[in-house]
């Protein structure tokens, strides 16, 4: 049982944080899975489908920390509406072109790498164990993203133009990923995290600059708006996404599928 020995406020903060991580993985995994059968190369279709599965499996793992029962876990994943979802708005944006999807995924992976790196130092053994398992697969995702970004950066004017557009769009939405949150302090006080996730922002900007922007000769433009996905304020795209995702499930949530 996660959060044993924590006060009510700290346990609530822990639950919020795990939901945030899980929702991020679910929404991104769902978007990634929409490329299935339509990726630019047959080989890449297979590779990207693994990445999508990894993200959604991580979501399942994280929801599983909050609900042991599989039906309850599915209710968490499929039963909430937009106001209940804690994911970053960046992740619900439609897939766009291959450049956008790759840049979005890689920028997210950088933020996630920093977050799960901190989870390795959590006093919560279940969180440490979850982080270890997720990071084994994330190493592949990071290598995949880096390879593709460098191949596309070297792929001619058209390719670079698309990458630049993607970087601009993703950067503009990126603040949501590591925005300061009201309950961060409680997480640190509980020992669940060594530091508030928002303290990772500077390292995040550094890495995105070096890994994504610099190869294109670009600088990382600080985002000018702060979406509030963590507070349940999402775009119309999220409504579409949830409607599709829960379509069959909601036809009878009490049925076994």
């Amino acid at each position: 049982m996660i959060g044993k020995g924590l006060g009510l406020g700290q346990r609530a903060a822990l639950r919020e944080y795990i939901l945030t991580l899980a929702d991020d993985e679910l929404v991104l995994g769902h978007r990634d899975s929409e490329w299935c059968a339509f990726a630019p190369l047959i080989e890449e279709d297979v590779a990207f489908a693994s990445i999508a599965q990894d993200e959604m499996a991580h979501a399942a793992l994280l929801y599983g920390l909050l609900e042991e029962d599989e039906a309850e876990r599915d209710a968490l994943a499929f039963g909430r509406d937009g106001r209940g979802m804690r994911s970053a708005v960046l992740l619900e944006r439609p897939n766009g072109d291959w450049a956008y999807s790759l840049v979005r995924h890689h920028v997210y992976d950088i933020a996630d790498d920093l977050r799960t790196g901190d989870l390795l130092e959590s006093k919560e053994p279940l969180l440490r164990a979850a982080a270890e398992r997720m990071r084994r697969e994330e190493r592949y995702h990071l290598a995949h993203g880096r390879s593709w970004l460098s191949v596309l950066a070297a792929g001619g004017a058209c390719s670079r133009e698309r990458l630049e557009r993607a970087v601009d769009a993703v950067a503009a939405d990126s603040y949501d990923l590591l925005r300061p949150l009201a309950w961060e302090g409680a997480l640190v006080a509980a020992g669940a995290l060594p530091r508030a996730p928002s303290r990772l922002w500077d390292r995040f900007v550094e890495r995105v600059g070096a890994e994504v922007c610099a190869p294109l000769g670009l600088a990382f433009h600080p985002p000018t708006h702060a979406p509030r996905g963590r507070e349940g304020e999402h775009s119309a795209a999220m409504d579409d996404l949830l409607r599709t995702m829960s379509e069959v499930y909601r036809s009878d949530p009490r049925a076994v599928w």
Binding site: V46, Y140, H144, V151
Partner: peptide
């Protein structure tokens, strides 16, 4: 066998295609 743009991508794809 597989088609890839670079040896690095070939390794990543090989894992996916043959080692799932």
């Amino acid at each position: 066998s597989l088609c890839a743009a670079t040896p690095e991508l070939a390794i990543l794809l090989a894992e996916e295609l043959f080692c799932r």
